[in-house]
Structures are given as structure tokens and as C-alpha cells.
Write a protein that binds this DNA or RNA. Structure first.
Lengths: 329, 329
DNA sequence: AAAGATAATGTAAACGATTACATGAAGGGG
DNA sequence: CCCCTTCATGTAATCGTTTACATTATCTTT
């Protein structure tokens, strides 16, 4: 049904090789012949079959993206960054949601291998040796975003420093009773380093750590809300809460407001991520901005370069975070 | 470098046809032979080349998704729904962001054709005859979400009714000075029908339309904020504002709060979409919920059925919206 | 004008699977 | 015990490109 290069060749009165050559313009074809071929392509509306091409040239111009869940804040922006750059380099992206399920993740890696993607952007769990080795053995380049592993390329921010900056800013406001609603301590990508940053800032300011002020959340709104309720009911309540995600921070704001505290006068809150919601809430949220879109862009640039065989000087890139001062602190 | 079916065949001491047969299990292969083949596959870690397979069987188990921008609220949830069902049916999704740019859109359609996707989920502009015809001619099934066109399959909600429900609810609260911050009137998918629903509700309640109360926004936060500022500075200010998107509604809330109005006592606001932010803001937002995830699921189910040649009874599905009553009204 | 160099195009073998058809082995009926 | 099915597997064509190599046309040079 669909036309092939043969149909075009016949109509143009040339061989298939010639048609292929005018399309790929790597070999010179006489002006006149070129015109005949182009006319035939135009007339038939012929579109080359990329699958056949891929089989021969051994690349697909497709890259896989493995993330936990596109509907969590955080991912859409970085995916958009990836896609924009991918598009510039003529790659398409295959999106895979794992829900952090190792089994699902393994299945996706398998189909991406079978579909012969040229590369994979991974931002899910921490990666395993098994997977890294397998991908290396089939020649699929891996790029990590917001996670890191051995000699693999990665794009990250300095989470320790970022959390430290946030907490130091609070301290600079003259507050010392600062609580943390952190991420999971088992999460080495964000939970742990942000906790460390919090501790570091307090220590350096000579403030002793109060166990009651440290809670573990799951980055979701509800856990921020619940956490704040708990913290605010302490007999010695904190005057500021640093949450390891904006969603949690927004939960904190709500809990604070509900309890009748004026923000920031009576309760300061600082978040992490700078999701777009954070500028919209009232009071708007002081937070740490991760350059999400840029992380996607830089990651995809790096990946594209490696795929094109360019030698890359820096294959572990740490992007700058930024403290965004708004109304909540 | 990577192994092919030949290597497996050699190792197992059988022909490539036999290997193919045990993998596809459409033809019976003796238990004993099967075992030899399976062992060889296991031993070599062989993964079939889906590209080669696609070339022969003429399907790719890939579907394209064309959207304006994955980083706008609205899309991540529906994309997630699509992906979940796609995954069940063993499809992968190729994500394409058009920014509503016709040129980019055309390019994406072209590469999706070249990459031989089995189907396309489209939720961008309104589709054109030219595109619909071209896709039909190359045999690519199209499914529309939240837009509609001629005989194409589609998943939508009843926007007129939804807006009407929202406004009627406001009226039921005893308020009659109701303003609208709508979408673009040139947007036939959402802007126009929601405007119509607003007008319908007012008319049926015998409330005359006040031109000053009708503003056009672009669904973004800022346009809601600006719009509300304008409305609230009217000498005869509205007592309620219906915004055609939650982002705009959140802008309205902020503008209202800044101007010192108590919400909902002095100013009611109702949004549209039920993005997850809407339950987090304070006061939380009364809004119309579109079943985004479900729209993705139902859409992909419909598409998968058509691709499997099942006769589908209903190819235009209108899903139920729901009024979510929260604090803002 | 012939010979050699070069330019333009054609021919056919890949790429790695699937599958129609061919073949050989095993089983069953008379 | 032979012939005919039926079952299991093998052989080779095919999908639509790209590209190494072969061939022919064109251009220099003397």
C-alpha cells in the first residue's frame, strides 16, 4: 500500500541507489537527475521508511527516557528540556514510567534494547551494576539526571549545598528553631544529601540538632501537611520549617495557615524545587530552584555529543541551584 | 557486536526459523528443541531486534503522542493514562511537543509516519483535513483527546455543560454578579464552549449578561491574576469569578486575597480542570474535574482496539466531568 | 582521436527478523 | 510392509533501505 523507494525510482527512471543518494545527499548526483527524483518524490508523496533505514544503518534516532512518573512535578520540565534538544539533533523520545518498580524498569530496559534506541536518559532509582553492564554490552549510552553512578555521565545539582543554602538563609533571618521535613533517608539522590545540608547549616551556626524537629516525608503534599501539624503541636514549636520539596512546603503553608499562624511573621517556610506552583500560592513560596528544563537540555546535549562520537571533556555536570526568595521567608 | 537470531540458531543447533518459532510460539515446536533454543537464548542473553521484526511484520508497537507542551498542567496526567494502557497492550509512546506550532506539528507527523508508528494520539490544535487524509492514506490510526473532528475517534468532555454546571452552582449560592475569565474565543475545544456554558447558565437563571464581566485569558496564572485585578477594580465589582482554568483561578484567588477580600465570603472563585494544585492552595479551589488520567486510558484503549481490528461500537466518547466543591465557593 | 582519469549511475548484497513452501521423519490403516 | 497423513523442522524469499563494487558516460590530455 505505502510506496517504497522502488516506486519512486521507477517513476523517476533511475535506480533505487540514486534515489537513496539524492535523499541522503552524501554523494553527488547530477542536478538534472536530482530534479527528476525530487519531482517523483513530490508527486508520489513518498516518505522513506525509517525502520528499514535503521536496520541497515544501525541507529534509530530514538532515545528512551526512564522516569518514575510523568505526572509528578519535576519530570515534565526536564522531559521537555530533553525533548527540545533531542528534536534539534533529530532524535525522538520514548517515554517510560516505572513508578520506581524494579520489575517494570527491567522490562522497559529490555524493550528499549530490543527497539534499538541509541541512548537512554535515566532518572529513576539508583542504577545497578547489572543494568549498567548490560547497556554497555549492547552499546547503548546511558545518561543519568539527578542521580549519579560510577563512571556514567550525569547531570545533578549539589543537594547538600542547596539545602545548606536554604537553611542558612533562614538562620540569617534570625531564626534558630528550624525544623526539617525531609525526603526518605533511603533516597541517596535527594533525601540524604538534603538532610546532610540541613545538619551542616545548623552545625556551622552552632545550633544543636533537635531530634523532634526532624521528620521524614515522601515529597508529597500530604506528608508536608501532616508533618507540619505534628511540628506545630510540639510544646516548643519551630519558627521555621524547611521542606525537601515544594509540594510538602505547600502542605506546610496550609497547615500553618489553618492553625492561624501568619506566614512568614510567625512561621517561615522554605521549599525545594521551585515548581511553578510555588510562585502562585499565597503567600508565595521561598524555595531552592533546580534548573529542571536546563537539566534536561544539558543532559540531552551531553548524550547527543557522546552519540556523535564527540569527545566530551566533562561527563559529570553539576548545575547551579538558586535560592528564590519570595514571601514565605 | 550484538547477537542475532543466527548466533542463537547455531548455538542451539537448529535453523533460524525454529528459533523464531519458539520465540513467537504461534507454531508448535518439540519440547526438546524448545529447551535447546531457550537455553541458547538464556546463555547468550540474546534479545530480538525489534526493528528487523517491524520491517517484516509491518507494525512497530509504537504510538506517537502529539501535545502542545508536556510541562503544561493537564497533559502529564493524560499522557500517564495513555502510557499505562499502551504498556498493557505492549505499545511504547513517542512524545512530541508542538507548542501549537503548525510547522513543528507537521514535522512531527512526518517523522511519525517515517518511523511507522501504528497510531497517533493527538491533542494539539484542531486537526486539519490535510493531515487527517494523509494519515488515513498511510494507514495510521488517529485518536483525538479533548478535541474532535469529523469521523475521527475522540475522547472529550462536555465543556458547555461543565461550564454551565460551574456557573449554576455559583448561582445556587445566591450570587448573581458572576464574571468570567475565559479561554481564547478562537479555541473551539475549550474557550468557546466554556463561554457558551457560562452564558447559558446565566440566561437560564434570567441574569443579564454584563459585557464588563467577560474577559479573555490564556489559561495561564498571570492572565487570571491580571483579569481579576481588572474585575475587582470595577465600580460594581463581581461577587464571584469563574475562570476557565485552575491556573487562572489560582491567579484570581491571589488577586482577591491581595486586595483584602475574604474568599469565599466576599469573593467566590471557581476554576476548571482540577489540577492537583487546586486542592493544595489555601483556600482550596472549587473546580470542575476533568478525568484526565481516565481520558488517557480510555483513549488508548479505544486506539488499541481499533489497531487490533476489533469493531468498536462507540468511537466518540464523552466522559463525565464532575464539580469538585472545596473552599473557594 | 585515443587513452586514461574521473564522474555519475546501476547492480546486488547486506541488515535481522518472519513465514510460505519444501523436506524428512514418524505414525496409522489396510 | 507400503503408502499416505501429519508433524517437526529446514530453506530461502522477503520487508525497504544503504552502500561497496561494477559499469558506463564524460572529460582531459596529448
Amino acid at each position: 500500500m505505502s510506496l517504497s523507494i522502488k516506486d519512486v525510482a521507477k517513476l523517476a527512471g533511475v535506480s533505487v541507489a540514486t534515489v537513496s543518494r539524492v535523499m541522503n545527499k552524501k554523494v553527488f548526483v547530477k542536478e538534472e537527475t536530482t530534479k527528476k527524483v525530487l519531482d517523483a518524490i513530490e508527486k508520489t508523496g513518498y516518505k522513506p521508511n525509517a525502520i528499514a533505514r535503521s536496520l541497515k544503518v544501525k541507529n534509530t534516532k530514538s532515545i528512551g527516557i526512564i522516569i518514575p512518573d510523568i505526572s509528578s512535578h519535576f519530570f515534565p520540565d526536564v522531559v521537555r528540556g530533553i525533548e527540545d534538544i533531542a528534536n534539534e539533533y533529530s532524535y525522538n523520545i520514548i517515554l517510560c514510567n516505572t513508578d520506581l518498580n524494579r520489575e517494570k524498569e527491567k522490562e522497559y530496559f529490555d524493550v528499549l534494547v530490543e527497539k534499538q534506541v541509541d541512548g537512554i536518559v535515566y532518572m529513576s532509582n539508583t542504577i545497578t551494576d547489572e543494568i549498567a553492564d548490560k547497556m554497555a554490552s549492547v552499546g547503548i549510552e546511558i545518561l543519568l539526571i539527578s542521580t549519579d553512578y560510577k563512571e556514567l555521565s550525569s547531570i545533578t545539582i549539589d543537594n547538600v549545598k542547596a539545602a545548606e543554602d536554604a537553611v542558612k538563609y533562614i538562620i540569617s533571618k534570625g531564626v534558630r528553631d528550624i525544623a526539617l521535613i525531609g525526603g526518605e533517608m533511603t533516597d541517596p539522590n535527594a533525601g540524604l544529601p538534603r538532610f546532610n545540608g540541613y545538619v551542616k547549616a545548623l552545625s556551622e551556626a552552632g545550633i544543636s540538632i533537635n531530634k523532634d524537629y526532624i521528620l521524614e516525608g515522601n515529597y508529597k503534599y500530604e506528608s508536608g501537611y501532616e508533618g507540619a501539624k505534628k511540628l506545630l503541636s510540639l510544646k516548643q514549636r519551630p519558627r521555621a520549617i524547611f521542606a525537601a520539596s515544594d509540594e510538602m512546603a505547600i502542605g506546610v503553608i496550609r497547615a500553618g495557615l489553618e492553625s492561624g499562624y501568619r506566614i512568614p511573621d510567625e512561621l517561615m517556610v522554605v521549599g525545594f524545587d521551585d515548581i511553578d506552583m510555588s510562585r502562585m500560592v499565597y503567600p508565595s513560596l521561598t524555595t531552592i530552584s533546580q534548573p529542571l528544563y536546563e537539566m534536561g537540555c544539558e543532559g540531552m546535549k551531553l548524550l547527543a555529543k557522546k552519540l556523535h562520537g564527540e569527545k566530551v571533556e566533562q561527563f559529570k555536570i553539576v548545575l547551579e541551584h538558586k535560592l528564590i526568595i519570595r514571601e514565605s521567608c
